[in-house]
Write a protein that binds this DNA or RNA. Structure first.
Ligand SMILES: Nc1nc2c(ncn2[C@H]2C[C@H](O)[C@@H](COP(=O)(O)OP(=O)(O)OP(=O)(O)O)O2)c(=O)[nH]1
Ligand SMILES: [Mg+2]
Ligand SMILES: [Mg+2]
Ligand SMILES: [Zn+2]
Length: 576
DNA sequence: GCCGTTTTCGGCCCGACTGTTTTCAGTCG
């Protein structure tokens, strides 16, 4: 099969690392890394673009040379340049680069003078005391290397799910807010951008005059700290007991906006905004926007953006993926927000594998401020969840009708999450589906089929006129299970043709349909349902997760069906 | 290697912390 975007990204990053160890032009190195980033962020598989003879140099950051190299990678599965580099330098040097404190220069030094080419070599050399004598190293850095060897990220070691990081973030915020002199605490970085997973927590703090030192002291003394990596006046890094790194930055109040902008990133976004400032005769750093020595902005992020002629850019969009041009043209979308949401279109109760009763879920939804909640139990095929057969569905519908009698201004929608069988038929008879308010169809079994078959299976399910929503379309579980091999472009077009809605499942390890495909779907005119797939009353609050993912996909109120009133929603569902 | 209503050549974001170093390079955010 053709290489995936992530595999192409890895090859380009390998070239970059090896060039850097060889002390090549740093800007050339950067160009490879930038191309790798662009490819990682692309929604479409690069292989498809190459096959379709698309001109890759249309992408900013990919020029004539890199376009040709990417094409070579897709067509041959490798890159001649990389093979040559690997003859010149052992590829295991890339492992050395993973050791904290070892970058390209020190790696080259270790290899050149001590023949250190692997982590084992490194440990041996350090323990024998050979490294301390090397120029640029000393006793401390040798000791540091020994300690750092334990912190090398193994391949396959996972980034934290956003929702897991949130638990640590909240605890830390609380601790920091209680420190005397602290004014503001903000978790920035990938966490604030709402990424699916985060590599660390980046926390910005402002405090009263001359309190910086004490505040920093208090931070590194946090009970959860296992390890202090660095400890300076304005910036420190620690490792918490669960292995999570936290970077803390302290600035004065006047720099809050500029610092928040810096620390929220992304790196690529920062570089692009700072470049804009340069072009306009300004300099942006974490302290403010400067014209010469004079600070001209920086108290708020809005000020920072305004200084370079941009409207405020929401954190979720800050990836240098078109948001800066859109802000310059004042055409950023009004992103989906919590107050837009009128209901939830996917949940389970105790009748199958949920925990709440129908009444409890209804009251939970009302407490969320909703007009409707679709109860979508599993169908019979999903036996381990106690899925319902046709007869049971009809009985259950009566029960829901009875409960709905008690409400005004709110309704439980009679739904089902119907399993898509291996051949694309649905797990319940059309005669039953026809009586439901809402049908979510999703794949639970046989997720390993070749792409063509799997895609046909799903499109066949969407052919059923009662299929309203395609549930968790890729079936991925973040950090656990890869997405199914499917042609999502085809599925999006098929959904468009049939009036099928795609689900953005808000479960923290699903976030499925992934954001970039949500963007593609919305651009194709396909609507999205942001659904929690709640299995308990508390789970209804996962809507926030879904909204963050939707925002990263540039979705607006208009793109999302569960922003509609009940009557509008029902009108918008396809009918046979 | 990329890029261009200032440029097709000459720039490419900017700064904190550490350790090794006599004034700063390397790494990292
Ligand atoms: N201007 C500038 N800012 C940077 C650079 N590297 C990092 N930053 C800023 C933007 C990042 O979002 C922020 C935090 O850095 P991190 O390494 O923690 O990255 P981030 O949180 O985006 O992703 P992560 O999930 O931690 O891998 O610091 C850089 O090279 N230049
Ligand atoms: Mg981070
Ligand atoms: Mg960080
Ligand atoms: Zn479900």
């Amino acid at each position: 099969m053709f290489l995936q975007n992530n595999e192409i990204r890895d090859l380009l990053n390998q070239v970059a690392d090896l060039l850097e160890i060889r002390d090549d032009n740093p800007f050339r190195v950067r160009a490879y890394r930038e191309a790798a980033r662009v490819i990682e962020q692309m929604t479409e598989p690069v292989a498809s673009l190459v096959k379709a003879n698309k001109d890759l140099s249309q992408y900013r950051g990919i020029g004539r040379d890199l376009a040709a190299k990417i094409r070579e990678i897709v067509e041959t599965g490798g890159l001649e340049q990389l093979r040559r580099l690997r003859q010149e330098l052992p590829v295991s040097l890339l492992d050395l680069m993973q050791v904290p404190s070892l970058g390209p220069k020190k790696t080259a030094q270790l290899y050149k003078h001590l023949g250190v080419a692997s982590l084992e070599d490194l440990e041996r050399a350090a323990r024998r005391g050979q490294i301390a004598d090397l120029s640029g190293f000393g006793e401390k850095s040798q000791q540091h290397i020994i300690e750092s060897l334990g912190r090398v990220k193994k391949s396959g070691e996972k980034r934290l799910l956003w929702s897991d990081a949130a638990v640590h973030a909240r605890a830390l915020e609380e601790y920091l807010m209680d420190i005397e002199g602290v004014r503001r605490v903000r978790v920035a970085g990938s966490f604030r951008r709402g990424e699916e997973t985060v590599g660390d927590l980046d926390v910005l703090v402002t405090c009263g005059r001359d309190r910086e030192k004490d505040v920093m002291e208090a931070f590194v003394s946090f009970e959860g700290v296992k390890n202090i990596l660095s400890h300076g006046k304005t910036k420190s890094s620690v490792i918490l007991r669960p292995g999570l790194q936290v970077d803390l930055r302290i600035v004065a109040q006047v720099s809050y906006g500029a610092a928040l902008h810096y620390f929220t990133g992304s790196r690529a976004h920062n570089i692009a905004v700072r470049k804009l400032a340069q072009d306009k005769g300004y300099k942006i750093n974490e302290y403010g926007v400067y014209q010469g020595e004079k600070r001209v902005a920086g108290k708020t992020e809005k000020e920072v953006y305004a200084s370079v002629g941009l409207t405020y850019i929401p954190p979720e969009l800050r990836e240098n993926m078109g948001e800066i041009q859109a802000a310059a043209d004042n055409r950023l979308p009004a992103l989906l927000k919590r107050s837009d949401i009128r209901g939830d279109l996917h949940c389970h109760t105790r009748r199958t594998d949920g925990h709440g009763s129908l009444e409890e879920m209804a009251h939970g939804a009302i407490a969320m401020g909703y007009q409707y909640l679709a109860v979508t139990e599993h169908s019979q095929k999903v036996a381990m969840a106690g899925g319902l057969n046709e007869k049971q569905v009809l009985q259950y519908m009566k029960k829901i009708d009875a409960i709905n009698e008690k409400f005004s201004g709110f309704r439980l929608l009679k739904g089902m999450e119907v399993d898509i069988l291996a051949d694309g038929r649905l797990d319940l008879a059309d005669s039953v589906l026809a009586q439901l308010d809402l049908v979510v169809c999703s794949v639970h079994y046989q997720q390993r089929m070749d792409e063509k078959k799997q895609t046909e299976r799903i499109i066949r399910a969407m052919d059923n006129p009662y299929c309203h929503i395609l549930g968790h379309p890729t079936a991925r579980l973040i950090n656990t299970r890869d997405p199914m091999e499917i042609d999502l472009e085809k599925i999006i077009l098929a959904a468009k043709d049939r009036g099928v809605i795609l689900e953005l499942n808000a479960q923290p390890d699903r976030l499925d349909l992934p954001s970039s495909y949500c963007k593609m779907a919305a651009e194709s005119g396909v609507r999205i349902a942001v659904s929690t797939d709640a299995h308990s009353v508390e789970n209804l609050e996962l809507m926030e997760n879904g909204i963050a993912a939707a925002r990263r996909g540039w979705l607006t109120r208009n793109d999302v069906v569960n922003t509609r009133s009940l009557s509008e929603l029902l009108r918008l569902l396809r009918r046979p």
